[in-house]
Design a protein around this nucleic acid. Sequence first.
DNA 1: AAGACGTCGCATTCCC
DNA 2: GGGCATGCGA
DNA 3: GTCTT
Length: 298
Amino acid sequence: MLGATNLMRSHTQTSHIRLKRTFVVVTVAREKFITPGPKKDTKKQKKIKFDPTDELWKSDINLNEDITKALGGVALLEKERKSGDPFKQRAYENAIYIITSYPARIISGAEAKKLQGIGSSIANKIDEILKTGTCESLKEKQEDAELFETFSQVFGVGPVAAKRFVDKGYKSISDLANDPDLTDMQRLGIKYVDDFKLMIPKVEAQGLIHYVQDVLKELSPAYIGIACDGHRRELSETNSLYMAITHPNYTSSPSTDPGRLLLDLTDALTDLGFLTDHISSGILKYWVRWESIEGSTI
DNA sequence: AAGACGTCGCATTCCC
DNA sequence: GGGCATGCGA
DNA sequence: GTCTT
């Protein structure tokens, strides 16, 4: 039985001197990851339920782009104003997604309200959008909302920090670098802000996986390390790499202490110069940044 | 009217 | 210094 | 913010 799950995240960037890549490793060992609990079956058919697999919802173009665009703006404002209520945020995203897929032109808020996921608040906004072409609330603090979104792109910057940066009057990500209260994670996020956005081609991902597997095997032939997620699913490129690492001595049932299972690996990879910036480090979870050495065969 | 909306490891802050 | 709450990412 | 109880 799989006892530990490692996650890696890798990105690439080209500079004139050398290739740069970021790399994140995470381990998690919890039985619930392996045997997920029973799924709740909540079905009520009063409202029209959105089903992306249903032919009925197949729409190549968004017939309600004016509505979804305006709602997107409102959602942004809401995010900034409340410093990000994740549920409200999701509610907006869900509604926008549904309306985008809706295979007909919406002519009233009431029509939209028939859809599951759209209630009276959004229905009212739709009426306003249809009538005036925009939303009154959209006229306020649009710039702040956009800055909030920009800052949120930085790794380590969530809704709270993003709001704080907006309130401090920062206008760009480069302004953040001077902030005295940055966490280590945010410093890395700023430093590698472009790096984190890049994708890793499959071939390269394979090389990285094999490299780690080789190091693993040297530590102990019994170690097991397999690729997970995107790379495992044979995607042509990924923006992150995940690996599950375990050892026969480490089982999740009954639970055993993983001990140095992960640290031995990350120590070795660090000694090799494979890993550089450490984002976080624990017994079960480890994140690092990796930077390749010029001339590396990877 | 009020709770659910996924959950958890790690970093950091806050509080005692 | 230990325990708890918060922020964050996944 | 929407849905459910």
